[in-house]
């Protein structure tokens, strides 16, 4: 016997969401199918248990601090965003001034650029490695 459709009706019956017509169909199926009868009994008992579980409510104090905390996070995010944009713009402007400065010779520019580019490459490499490590680190949540 195809019980598939009746599994969903069993849920609707458990949760008090079944229509009269569906209930009649389900009952006639249950009268013939011992497996579904047993399964409905088991799931009904299980649902009762799940319904009895209570999640602990948060403290009043935590709820009082909730919006100020969210606000601070929004503000901090905006602050970081502006800081990063500002630094990037300043650095780009500085590089532009340096490159276009007619008083500095090409050789001087080249010699200054070498260690700066090298340091940047090292920085990017270290950051990339740290990011990759933190993605796969299995013990990062372990308290030291």
């Amino acid at each position: 016997m195809a019980c598939g459709r009746f599994k969903e009706l069993m849920m609707a019956s458990l949760d008090g969401e079944i229509s009269a017509e569906d209930r009649a169909q389900l009952e006639s199926h249950l009268a013939e199918c011992a497996d579904c009868r047993r399964e409905l009994d088991e799931l009904s008992e299980l649902s009762e248990l799940v319904g009895e579980i209570e999640l602990p409510r948060p403290s009043q104090e935590d709820m009082m601090k909730y919006w100020p905390s969210v606000y601070a996070k929004i503000e901090r995010g905006a602050g970081w965003g502006l800081l990063v944009i500002g630094v990037v713009v300043w650095v780009a402007y500085g590089v532009f001034l340096f490159i276009t400065d007619p008083t500095t010779g090409s050789m001087t520019k080249f010699l200054i650029a070498l260690p700066v580019v090298g340091a940047l490459m090292l920085l990017v490499s270290v950051i990339r490695e740290r990011v990759n490590t933190s993605k796969t680190e299995r013990y990062k949540e372990v308290e030291r």
């Binding site: 969903e8 849920m11 088991e42 799931l43 799940v50």
Partner: peptide, 13 residues
């Protein structure tokens, strides 16, 4: 919703 509820309860059981 109904099929997911059934799957969840069945899996829990």
């Amino acid at each position: 919703v109904m099929s997911r509820l059934y799957a969840a309860r069945q899996m829990l059981k």
